[in-house]
């Protein structure tokens, strides 16, 4: 049965159904409803909700809980995600699985609390120090976000990596009917063979992100790189929407992509054939597929709720095969369908 739910709440409930019983978080708009939902819901499912004293503490609580091999998550918004970057780097180095929900808002600095896609760089390029990556998933509807929670935990444990679900304030605050996913019971989940649980007769296990010997540390880094390569080969996801006959293909993710779907309807009614290429994994980015597509279309327009972050990856994929254009608004201003249609008309006319 479908239920009308707020994005933050649908994501929280889906995480619980995916077997998450440990949530740590610190309030921040526009995602506090997720934290509040967990405060209410976790005790009902015998899980743990803890409001930390800061996002710096949150990420380290996550580090600790993840060390024990349990399914753990947090949620935050841009300034909080910035504070978590140190811990994220440590967790990536320790190869710990965990889920981060970043409900982005306008920046930089305190910025505002309106929807934005300002943290693409921070999420996909490594906001903390060192050579690391995290898997970044970008749903564009609440149903997709809800379905993604289980997948996110599966990916995190399969590769021992961090997974960020990157959405904006609009997905956080809007309501849409969702069909909630089936329950995965925490008991069905096998304890990983690296988890710190107390040696109890077996050889003690260690989880760290350091080795002072550069050659040893390099080995660790090469192992991470090996993982990242596998993920890039196996886990790339995207959606193609009406691109077969398109004279111009728009590249957009998340909320922006769904707004573009409406634009495509308008544009086609007025005789302009527009298609959409929507990366679902922002890291790994679908370079190869986009590269192929760019061979057959003259113009590519990237639309973002930022002044151009993903467009850099689009350019890397396209090289010189087609013309890459950009349209974006930032600071919490959401480009409207009419504006995007204008941007498209300027290019094709």
């Amino acid at each position: 049965m479908k239920m009308l739910m707020k994005g933050t709440e649908a994501i929280a409930e889906a995480a619980i159904r995916a077997g998450c019983r440990l949530y740590f978080g610190y309030p921040i708009t526009p995602q506090s409803e997720l934290t509040e939902y967990m405060a209410k819901r976790m005790p009902e499912v015998k899980g743990t909700f803890l409001q930390s004293e800061s996002e710096v503490a949150t990420v380290n609580m996550l580090y600790g809980a993840a060390c024990t091999g349990r399914k753990v998550m947090t949620s935050t918004s841009s300034p909080g995600f910035s504070l978590m970057q140190e811990g994220i780097s440590y967790m990536a180095g320790a190869e710990l699985p965990a889920i981060f929900i970043n409900v982005m808002r306008g920046g930089p600095g305190l910025g505002d609390i309106q929807p934005s896609q300002s943290d693409y760089f921070q999420s996909t390029k490594g906001g903390g120090h060192g050579d690391y990556r995290m898997i970044v998933l970008a749903p564009h509807t609440l149903q997709e976000a809800t379905n993604m929670m289980k997948e996110a935990f599966d990916l995190a444990f399969k590769y021992r990596m961090l997974v960020t679900i990157l959405v904006d304030g609009m997905i956080g605050q809007m309501m849409e009917p969702v069909e909630l996913p089936e329950w995965t019971k925490p008991e069905e989940f096998e304890e990983p063979n690296w988890a710190l649980t107390g040696a109890n007769g077996r050889k003690p296990r260690k989880v760290t992100s350091f080795d002072l010997d550069p050659y040893e540390l390099e080995k660790m880094n090469l192992r991470y790189q090996e993982t990242y390569k596998k993920v890039s080969q196996n886990e790339v996801k995207y959606e193609e929407f009406k691109i077969e006959d398109a004279e111009i293909t728009v590249v957009a993710y998340g909320t922006m992509a769904r707004i573009v779907k409406t634009v495509i309807d308008y544009a086609r009614k007025s005789g302009i054939k527009v298609g959409l290429f929507r990366p679902i994994t922002l890291w790994p980015f679908p370079y190869e597929r986009l590269s192929e597509i760019s061979k057959n279309v003259k113009n590519i327009l990237t639309v973002e709720m930022s002044y151009g972050q993903m467009v850099e990856d689009v350019k890397l994929a396209v090289e010189e095969k087609s013309d890459v254009h950009f349209y974006g608004r930032s600071a919490g201003v959401v480009p409207t369908p009419a504006e995007i249609l204008d941007a498209i008309k300027k290019i094709v006319r």
């Binding site: 309030p27 921040i28 506090s32 934290t35 509040e36 405060a39 909700f49 409001q51």
Partner: peptide
């Protein structure tokens, strides 16, 4: 409480006080 963000628990919240993140 945290006023700005909608009344969540603060470190100064009294024992037993209900807030949006201490609903019980």
């Amino acid at each position: 409480v945290y006023g700005m963000t909608g009344g969540q628990m603060a470190p100064t919240t009294l024992l037993g006080q209900k807030t949006t993140t201490s609903p019980y």
